[in-house]
């Protein structure tokens, strides 16, 4: 048990709690999804710190699963939920 690492994990937990504001009020769907991604990254960091703090190396494997699956939700969201309105326009500002 090392209190220092657990204290650092405790500092990171509000970063998740405050980020929830963006899920609740984010204007577009992508804003909400981005916050879920932030939770993934913060969750990996908290797991790494807890693994050092609790002296349990198994938690590194959970962090590995977190990071492997972090992209999956966002990609499904882009492919399935947040498609453009039919036709793609290839005219962008400032070409």
């Amino acid at each position: 048990m090392s209190w220092m690492h657990i204290f650092f994990a405790l500092v990171l937990l509000p970063a998740i709690g405050v980020g929830m504001i963006r899920i609740l009020r984010g204007p577009t769907a992508a804003d909400r999804m981005m916050t879920a991604q932030l939770f993934g990254t913060c969750g990996v960091a908290i797991l790494l710190l807890l693994s050092a703090g609790m002296g349990n190396p198994v938690l590194l494997d959970i962090a590995l699963v977190f990071s492997l699956l972090a992209a999956l939700a966002t990609m499904t969201f882009i492919r399935r939920t947040w498609r453009g309105s039919g036709k793609k326009k290839h005219e962008y500002p400032l070409q």
Binding site: I16, I23, T35, A36, F39, G43, I46, L50, I62, A73
Partner: peptide
Amino acid sequence: ISFGLLMAL
């Protein structure tokens, strides 16, 4: 999704 991540913690 966020609930699942925190529940894992």
